[in-house]
Nucleic acid binder design. Structure first.
Length: 683
DNA sequence: CTTTCAGACCTTTTT
DNA sequence: GGTCTGAAAG
């Protein structure tokens, strides 16, 4: 296929390198795209261009990091060309795997109705196996379910052995490598037996399917004639394999990524994957995008400097045509409350200057870092949405309902039963296991009212629960109806367990309304597992109102705002305290900071509270005030004093007896001592 | 034998 | 807020 006559003047919309990528139709290509260099633009225009050239939209596959990203891009591609672009196949590796595997499940020994385990499901299964194998009664402390799960997952995603992963991630447990391996084998067998897949299985099974089944590989590869992979630096080995297999028939694959923005190694991603691309595809065309269209020069000067200090050197130095503008502002705030207050004031004053709230983002390393700010925002009635951190589905009460639904879908869902049954007073782990056994034996809900349980104090509750299932089966209710049938049983238990049961009950209503869109329970559960909704986004129904964005840096990936405010630039916060001991992890933290700072178009605020309460904890052990150093990512920049403007901020209504006290050091004239201040401030 | 409850300790980041 | 442990209560 060659570029023919076009209705759209691509050359005026794109720069030379971008155009080269967009018009690269045949063969493998790797686009190394710096932050803000318009890589999504390239993908959008390329999709449009391919369709315009006569490619069937459904033969174009766009693999992205989140589903939202794929949808956004297709929407914009449709705007560039026309509606045909909305038919482009797109989604995450996981959702694509789900799609293909439902079709070919049988060829790999699965039933097409397999269920998907989310992380918590997987962990509780691990826990069940851990106690079945009696590893929970070892003399020595045995790794917890979370640790076991992450070791197994990392081993699967990176192709390393359990022992090697443990050697690196948790050397203090490495002598349990055999036991963990044993758990993994049991875990794998169990899932296969019960027709379940966890997130990793989706990738593994797809990879195996394509690798070992020539027929399927051909069919699939021929269907998707043009493959584009976004955020290639955050793919892992397994995903790299899948991409290569998908392209095996035609090699029309275009991968886009930035080695300087790799921030997902904790889930097995390796930015060196991007370097391996030319090895898999020796003839790959390499295109580099270095012109930044997002940020003003002073911001770019600063962000270039962050990444310059990386151990591994990167191939790009970004430049922009956006001259002028203010330098990033470093703000030394008295404490976290002052920091929060500064954010509120800044946000409000920006809004006075016509910067909409939704064009301002507050970014932070860990979800809980914004806790204080959230209180302050609520007090001042500043609306916000928060991305990252806890998901809606992770709330205990939502999990309860979800597990109930799993048992409705499948009488034999042990994980579901193990959560639903102990809700009943007097039923603990052991009794739950017995009841589950009876249900499994009968392959019917009547196992709940087995003779064994006659006369027990929980008999009545089991009967009530049994009636709930009977009602659902006889009425063929939609998903929302199933949840409604569960409520009379569940509500009293919820009420007994939590003081704030009212708030929690609201969530269940939200879940009911979400379920309203699904006719099939199976689809509902699959969708929620593949695309878990954000907690706060779900809670706030009034979505039209303009809102300030709060986000973890990880969730801010790929996005941009007029103004970006980065919280708590402290050693222990960013870099996170868990990463301090490891060189590679520090490097990843640096890239994280780079990603955060490069989100800003016009204004960048770098906040640094002098003291923090409660150390690093988010679990309420307040009362202790800690002093931490400024983040090394700031202090290591030698000419930082030239790159940023220095400000101090003390809380205004903190009740100082001397109103001037907070401004004792105040001098905003940007003296040569700025660097010293950033370095030494309160430490 | 099972459940429950108090207290210690802790989870980054996400499909 | 959750998870895990040990020990008291049922």
């Amino acid at each position: 296929m060659r570029g023919g006559y076009s209705m759209i003047d691509y050359s005026s919309e794109l720069n030379e390198s971008q155009l080269r990528a967009v018009e690269f139709f045949e063969g493998p290509a790797l686009v190394i795209a710096g932050a803000g260099s318009g890589k999504t633009r390239v993908l959008e225009y390329r999709a449009a261009r391919l369709v315009e050239n006569g490619a069937d939209p459904e033969s174009i596959l766009l693999l992205t990091f989140t589903r939202r990203a794929a949808q956004e891009m297709m929407k914009r591609a449709s705007r560039i060309l026309d509606d045909r672009c909305s038919r482009v196949a797109g989604g995450t590796f996981h959702s694509f795997a789900n799609h293909i595997l439902r079709k070919y499940a049988k060829t790999i020994g699965y039933d097409p109705k397999f269920t998907i385990l989310d992380r918590e499901d997987s962990e509780s299964l691990i826990n069940v196996l851990r106690s079945t194998l009696q590893y929970d009664v070892t003399k020595e402390r045995f790794p917890k379910k979370r640790t076991i799960m992450s070791v197994i997952s990392k081993s699967v995603n990176t192709g390393k052995s359990i022992k090697d992963v443990m050697d690196y991630d948790c050397p203090h447990f490495v002598h349990f490598a055999d036991e963990v391996g044993h758990i993994q084998r049991e875990y794998t067998a169990y899932k296969k037996n019960k027709n379940m897949m966890d997130y990793d299985d989706l990738l593994v099974c797809l990879c195996d399917l394509l690798r070992y089944n020539k027929q399927v590989r051909r069919t699939v590869s021929r269907k998707y004639r043009f493959i584009m992979v976004d955020e290639f630096q955050d793919t892992n080995k397994l995903q790299g394999h899948i991409a290569a297999l998908l392209a095996s028939e035609h090699e029309n694959i275009l991968a886009v990524g930035d080695d300087a923005q790799s921030i997902y190694s904790f889930r097995g991603a390796n930015f060196r994957n991007i370097m391996d691309f030319p090895e898999i595809f020796p003839d790959a065309e390499i295109i580099t995008l270095e012109q930044n269209y997002r940020s003003i020069q002073p911001i770019l000067d600063f962000t270039n400097r962050i990444i310059e200090n990386a151990e591994e050197k990167y191939s790009k130095e970004l430049f922009t045509a956006k001259e002028g503008g203010d330098r990033p502002v470093f703000v030394a705030a008295g404490d976290e409350d002052a920091q929060a207050e500064f954010v509120c004031r800044t946000v409000l004053s920006l809004r006075e200057d016509d910067v909409p709230l939704s064009d301002i983002a507050v970014l932070f390393r860990n979800s809980f870092h914004s806790n204080r700010l959230e209180v302050e925002l609520t007090n001042r009635n500043i609306p916000y949405v928060k991305y990252g951190g806890f998901k809606f589905l992770e709330a205990a009460h939502i999990k309860d309902v979800m597990c109930f639904l799993k048992t409705v879908l499948n009488v034999d869902d042990e994980i579901g039963w193990r959560r639903v049954l102990p809700l009943i007073p007097g039923v603990g782990d052991v009794t739950a296991q017995n009841i589950t056994g009876r249900v499994s034996e009968a392959q019917d809900y009547k196992g709940l009212v087995h003779a064994d349980f006659r006369g027990k104090k929980y008999e009545k509750d089991l009967k009530a629960l049994h009636r709930v299932y009977s009602e659902i089966i006889s009425s063929e209710s939609p998903v929302s109806g199933m949840i409604e049938s569960f409520i009379p049983f569940y509500k009293p238990l919820l009420k007994a367990k939590y003081d704030n049961y009212n708030v929690r009950f609201q969530d269940i209503n939200t879940l009911i309304s979400m379920a309203g869109n699904y006719a099939s329970l199976e689809n509902f559960l699959t969708q929620l597992a593949l695309e878990p909704p954000e907690k706060n986004v779900v809670e706030q129904a009034d979505r039209d109102e303009e809102k300030l964005v709060l986000s973890t840096i990880h969730s801010a990936k790929g996005l941009e705002w007029n103004t970006v405010i980065i919280l708590s630039l402290l050693e222990g916060y960013l870099p996170d305290k868990r990463c301090l001991g490891d060189k590679d992890e520090i490097e990843e933290e640096r890239r994280l900071f780079y990603v955060a700072a490069t989100r800003a178009k016009e204004r960048l605020y770098l906040l640094r509270p002098a003291s923090v309460h409660g150390g690093f904890s988010n679990y309420g052990n307040q009362g202790f005030t800690g002093i931490l150093k400024s983040s090394r990512f700031l202090t290591e920049i030698e000419d930082i004093a030239d790159l940023v403007e220095y400000q101090e901020y003390e809380r205004e209504d903190a009740g100082y007896s001397d109103p001037d006290e907070g401004y004792e050091h105040d001098s905003n004239e940007g003296s040569g001592d700025t660097m010293g201040r950033i370095n030494r401030y309160y430490d």
